[in-house]
Design a protein around this nucleic acid. Structure first.
Length: 825
RNA sequence: GCCGAAGUGGCGGAAUGGGCAGACGCGCUGGUCUCAAAAACCAGUGGGGGUAACCCCGUGCCGGUUCGAAUCCGGCCUUCGGCACCA
């Protein structure tokens, strides 16, 4: 039967298989006896159709999932939507569409794109965080954490985004002081808010990083930085006027004898009590007013001038009974350490600046090895190591050693002792927004804060409300929502009207996938035991701290609750770089947005997937090129034509002058097997770009083979079928179609991954490189199993080499077996 | 300022337990086909020199180790990312 030569029509092929795979529920995760792989990609925020970042991210996951399916694993590869969040409310403000409507419409759009892209998801496990069946359990976790003392309400200086009209967690403020979401500058506001006590887990979050051997080093470094552990000492100073102790934290106890003043954060509760005289009180108020107007970023900027006010009181340094003045100063932070700092101007640059400004004494207590310090002549603080001086019995002690000795001394005399501090702050989780999971708490005038009883969950977010004036949340104005009765005493009470940070929703979603329809628990524990932890997590580097730190924290809390028996959720992590266009982030305002939809339409999902992987290593940023994507399309055409023109046609008219022993048949087989070997190992290394290039080389090789010689049918069949099988995870549609053209009855995606024969994968011939003094002078084709002696002989026999040696004396011959000979003269 | 990553053709990128620099693709040039073009196919393509065989230079810069360095070591420069008044 002669096939009519059909043109490669990506559109009809892809539509056909999307339908078939969908009807077959082809990629359901089945819990069976086989080894499992849980391949997870960070679920999208549904803000519209899929964008290129999604394609890149999800294609990586899809290639791995399909690869492991064919390697005999049972694979969990799910998809869902991070569906609560501010953009939905912004859309409502701008166009009047309800956040729920907007979100569900976008889920529909992105789902359609994901299906068109051919991702092998188990669609029966689809979840959405705005679904009451999901957020019921988000609320349940909140209550459990409240019961464990890990969720608490407190007054604190919070990051307030004026444009979003809500508070933000520290992690959601960028280093320039702007809002991670909208870019507006964040201000500091003193507010009563809900927090998760992530600081209780600081040490474990840090310590368990040693388990994360499958994580990129840069992500671990960023988290380590963020947690910011430091070791030092607590020292209790005595307030002269009242005799009470004020504790400071320092990383340099060795400089304790150099204290010449004492500082309190402006928010420190002691400041008001100390500022007794009217004159001082006035100055302090004025000083605080000056700070209040500024953004928190401005206040903590390194180049902001150091300022302070003397509070009229003194403290006594416990180690030498020296009396030093107490100031409040703008650069002292209430949130870090104890909110009180000892001033050692000789050995701390900030204290030095402050001392110079207010004419405070500078006392040298560390002497550098190679210089003499004179207080009056110093231009900056000496922060390095040295020998302790002016420090009583500690004189002559090296500073590193001194730190320890002072700590011992403090502990022996109950003046303080060793202490550890973290930069990490508690996670502020309440948001004054509508489109989020309601915090399941009730305020009762008699009983205080009472959690919603478990059986009353979920606290349903009413979806029939529209945003209040100025885009504000309608919940505080909606009596039918907030009016309730106290579960304890039955009296009239008021619900919490704040919702949760959406990062809470996404901190446990990977648990929900294992049993998405479970109604009596957040997840089925047997299913978790089988599928978790996630074997491979894939997502953008922008979540290096945020989502990944929160998820690690949640997992540890779940462990402490006794729900799971592991402490880290993601065994291996792959962080992909950003896709840019013309070197810049794609954005509507720049007008440089390219959307997957247009390319799926024009060139096909297979082409798009192939190109986006071929562009470069996954972890690097990639710049989109229209010319490049055409090249990928051209390659798929070549594959299509290979099957139709070179394979089917030639098989139809077999056999003239078949010379089985011709070297070229063996070379073809060798190339086929070599390609299996390289593509397999490259996929496991995430080197998808080179995996694709090896498949391209195989295709080029087959073209050459069929052009040069009448192919052997078995050799050609092996080569062509292997090509399709290796290409299948990358471009699932065209390979499935061609597989069918070849008369296969089962899906190519269910066929076992090809195995290679190591003997065949080895070349018969190698190119021997011959160098003279390290410079390549000749290349000789030799048999692969050549002996070292023959290598030397061949090299020395070479005409070109002889010319370069001329009549100089050969001093040495270096031989690298099977590769290279270097002749040194 | 501190920490981390990276600098390779016109472009995206290959090659690091030291051993052929530039795989694969894009772009470009020439050719075949065509009335012509597109597509497709074939050939070429780091720079310089030479009619040629060939020769010299070349992986951010300067040194070093080595028979041999994109790869290792020391010092610089640049870019990107993170942290940054955290006591």
């Amino acid at each position: 039967m002669i096939q009519t030569h059909k043109q490669y029509d990506h559109k009809s092929i892809e539509e056909k298989w999307v339908k078939i795979w969908s009807e077959d529920q082809a990629y359901r995760a089945v819990k069976d006896g086989r080894p499992k792989k849980y391949i997870l990609v960070m679920f999208p925020y549904p803000s519209g159709p899929a964008h290129m970042g999604h394609v890149a991210n999800y294609t990586l996951g899809d290639v791995l999932a399909r690869y492991f399916m064919r390697k005999g694993y049972t694979v969990l590869h799910p998809m869902g939507y991070d569906a609560f969040g501010l953009p939905a409310e912004n859309a409502a403000i701008q166009s009047g569409i309800h956040p729920a409507t907007w979100t569900r419409k976008n889920i529909e759009l992105i789902r359609q794109d994901l299906k068109r892209l051919g991702f092998a998801y188990d669609w029966t496990r689809e979840i959405s965080t705005c679904d009451p069946g999901y957020y019921k359990w988000t609320q349940w976790f909140f209550i459990k954490m409240f019961e464990m003392g890990l969720a608490y309400k407190a007054d604190a200086a919070a990051n307030w985004c004026p444009s979003c009209g809500t508070v933000l967690a520290n992690e959601q403020v960028l280093s320039d002081g702007s809002c991670e979401r909208c870019g507006a500058f964040v201000v500091s506001k003193w507010l009563n808010q809900w927090f998760f006590k992530i600081t209780d887990y600081a040490e474990r979050l840090l310590d368990d990083m040693k388990l994360l051997t499958g994580w990129p080093e840069r992500v671990l470094t960023m988290q380590r930085n963020w947690i910011g552990k430091s070791s030092g000492a607590h020292v209790d100073f005595t307030l002269e006027s009242t005799g009470e102790k004020i504790r400071v934290y320092t990383t340099r106890p060795d400089t304790l004898f150099g204290v010449t003043f004492f500082l309190l954060a402006p928010e420190h509760p002691l400041v008001d009590r100390l500022a007794r005289s009217a004159q001082i009180k006035e100055k302090v108020d004025e000083f605080r007013e000056g700070l209040a107007g500024r953004t928190s970023f401005e206040r903590s900027a390194i180049d902001t001038e150091k300022e302070g006010v003397f509070l009229g009181d003194y403290v006594i340094n416990p180690v030498n009974d020296e009396r030093v003045p107490v100031y409040t100063a703008n650069f002292v932070l209430m949130e870090y350490g104890t909110g009180a700092v000892m001033g050692v101007p000789a050995h701390d640059q900030r204290d030095f600046d402050f001392a110079r400004k207010y004419g405070l004494p500078i006392k040298i207590v560390i002497k550098p090895a190679d210089a003499e310090l004179v207080a009056e002549k110093m231009e900056s603080a000496y922060e390095g190591e040295g020998i302790m001086v002016n420090s009583g019995v500690f004189n002559g002690t090296p500073s590193e050693e001194g730190r320890n000795k002072i700590c011992d001394f403090l502990e022996e005399n109950s003046f303080g002792g060793r202490a550890v501090n973290y930069r990490l702050r508690d996670w502020l989780v309440s948001r004054q927004r509508y489109w989020g999971a309601p915090i399941p708490m009730i305020y009762c005038d008699f009983c205080g804060i009472v959690p919603v009883p478990e059986e009353d969950l979920p606290v349903i977010l009413p979806e029939n409300l529209s945003l209040a004036e100025g885009g504000k949340s309608p919940l505080p104005f909606e009596e039918s929502f907030y009016k309730t009765t106290c579960p304890k005493c039955g009296m009239e009470a008021k619900r919490e009207t704040d919702t949760m940070d959406t990062f809470v929703d996404s901190s446990w979603y990977f648990f929900r996938y294992v049993s998405p329809k479970e109604e009596n628990a957040p997840f089925d524990r047997d299913e978790v035991r089988y599928w978790m932890p996630v074997d491979q997590y894939i997502g953008g580097i922008e979540h290096a701290i945020l989502h990944l730190l929160y998820s690690r924290f949640f997992t540890k809390v779940l462990y402490d609750m006794g729900l799971i028996d592991f402490t880290e959720p993601f065994t291996n992590l792959l962080c992909q770089g950003m896709i840019t266009k013309d070197g810049a982030k794609m954005s509507k305002s720049r007008g440089n947005v390219v959307t997957p939809g247009e390319y799926i339409e024009k060139l096909g999902a297979d082409t798009l997937r192939l190109y986006i992987l071929f562009m470069g290593p996954p972890e690097c940023g990639k710049d989109w090129s229209d010319a490049g994507v055409e090249g990928a399309h051209r390659f798929l055409h070549r594959v299509w034509n290979l099957v139709h023109e070179r394979y089917i046609d030639l098989l139809e008219k077999p056999g003239a002058n078949l010379n089985q022993n011709d070297r070229r048949h063996r070379e073809m087989r060798s190339l086929t097997h070599k390609t299996i070997m390289k593509v397999s190992s490259d996929i496991e290394k995430f080197a998808f770009n080179t995996a694709v290039s090896f498949i391209m080389e195989l295709v080029n090789g087959i073209y050459k083979y069929t052009a040069e010689i009448t192919p052997d049918p078995d050799v050609l069949r092996e080569a062509v079928e292997t090509t399709l099988q290796l290409l299948a995870p990358f471009s699932p549609f065209i390979t499935e179609e061609l597989w069918q053209v070849l008369g296969k009855s089962e899906s190519i995606h269910l066929s076992p991954w090809p195995e290679y024969d190591p003997l065949l994968a080895k070349s018969e011939e190698i190119t021997l490189v011959v160098q003279v003094n390290g410079k390549v002078r000749d290349r000789i084709k030799v048999s692969a199993d050549i002996s070292e002696e023959d290598m030397r002989k061949k090299a020395l026999d070479s005409e070109k080499v002889r010319r370069h040696i001329a009549n100089r004396q050969i001093r040495k011959v270096v031989i690298v077996p099977g590769k290279l000979v270097n002749i040194v003269v």
